[in-house]
Amino acid sequence: MATLPDASRTAGRATISQRTLRTDKWWLQPLITVIVLVSFVIYSTWRAFSNANYFYEPLISPFYSPCLATSCVEGSTNFTPFGGWWILSPALIILIIPLGFRMTCYYYRKAYYRSFWQSPPACAVSEPHKKYTGETREPLILQNFHRYFFYLGLLLNIVLTYDAIIAFRNHDGEWFHMSVGTVVLLANATLLWMYSLSCHSCRHALGGRLKHFSKHPVRYKFWTVVSRLNTRHPMFAWLSLFGVALADFYVMLVAQGTIQNLYFF
């Protein structure tokens, strides 16, 4: 077990050699985070590379939407700026956005710095690293670009909302039908919106950057609402992550014929 780094021992601090004197299960939270995130990464990598079973009229998996290459299965897209030269799975194009968005998210940063990088693993438990520069330099200083991913993420939310709306059709393309798939895609889009709206960059852009709320009553209102959502950002971060995986999983099961997409009407 690591002990305190040398510099910290010699600075006249109390000589206590244990890494921590905490008696609770401080390691549990980071452990759960690692297990959940690793499972998600394995699942999504497998699905992103599989390049199959992501579309069944009118349902499209969020991992493959929008589908931007001509190799996308028929009916899943009519916008293919990447044309025919893109030979890898089309999911890999669009997944850059949610990946960048979540990697730079203030909440996920906390989660993976603590669990994967152990910096720190828990409060008042010393970290195993000799040196620490935090986000002062490359590459971690790039976390400051979170806001760009936030804006791109909004565009993606619009597309996924559109996907949920066109899921109000049946397999033959007729409107005003609703299936379990419709509910799944709607839930996914809703959770993604909640995740984006509760984002710290969103809170900042809507009003946080102002000095005088009194001069901007409307933005102040927005800021107040988003601030309230913001306190639940970690919850939305997890729920929307599960939501995306579940939506993809459902579409996969339907597309490969394991289950029927049950229609309510």
């Binding site: 940063r109 710095y113 200083i141």
Partner: peptide
């Protein structure tokens, strides 16, 4: 930049000030 928003300051504050969410992250955004 040294702050990596891991929120231990918030966790231990006896006044329950949301230091990370309401001060440090907004400051990083600014």
């Amino acid at each position: 930049g040294y702050c990596n928003i891991t929120k231990c300051c918030t966790e231990v504050c006896p006044e329950h000030i949301k230091i990370t969410d309401n001060a440090l992250i907004p400051l990083k955004e600014r």
